[in-house]
Amino acid sequence: MGQYLLVTIQVDLYDQLAESLEADLVNMVRKTSAKGVLIDVSSVSIIDSFMGRILGNIAAMSKIMDAETVVVGMQPAVAITLVELGLPLKGVHSALNVERGMELLRSKILQEEETPEEDDNDNTDSTE
């Protein structure tokens, strides 16, 4: 149990699985009172509008539960396809890889809280 949740999507999800991921993840945010969610999509070769919507949903749901979502490791071809499709994943932050994602989350949370004690917890990121 820690500040961040890390989810790695390893396979191309079919719709039901993606939907249950959405539900599970939001529950986990609640349970662990995580401040950030990292979704690693580096092994996902296809993100269509459904998958994009799931990602957007997770971000929006986490947001109202006070957690930021960062999608990390998107493949160039996937990014270009998403843009062509007209789906720039608004409201979802992106980072090149997991470390960068962590950094981004840290800075986001710092900005928000602006309390020095956050610094102490910074190095104790734990992942799911």
């Binding site: 999608v71 160039p76 996937v78 990014a79 843009v83 720039p88 992106s94 980072a95």
Partner: peptide, 12 residues
């Protein structure tokens, strides 16, 4: 604009 959006999706 598309190029910028795609770059942002990559996290840059």
């Amino acid at each position: 604009i598309k190029t910028v959006s795609a770059t942002r999706l990559m996290g840059a």
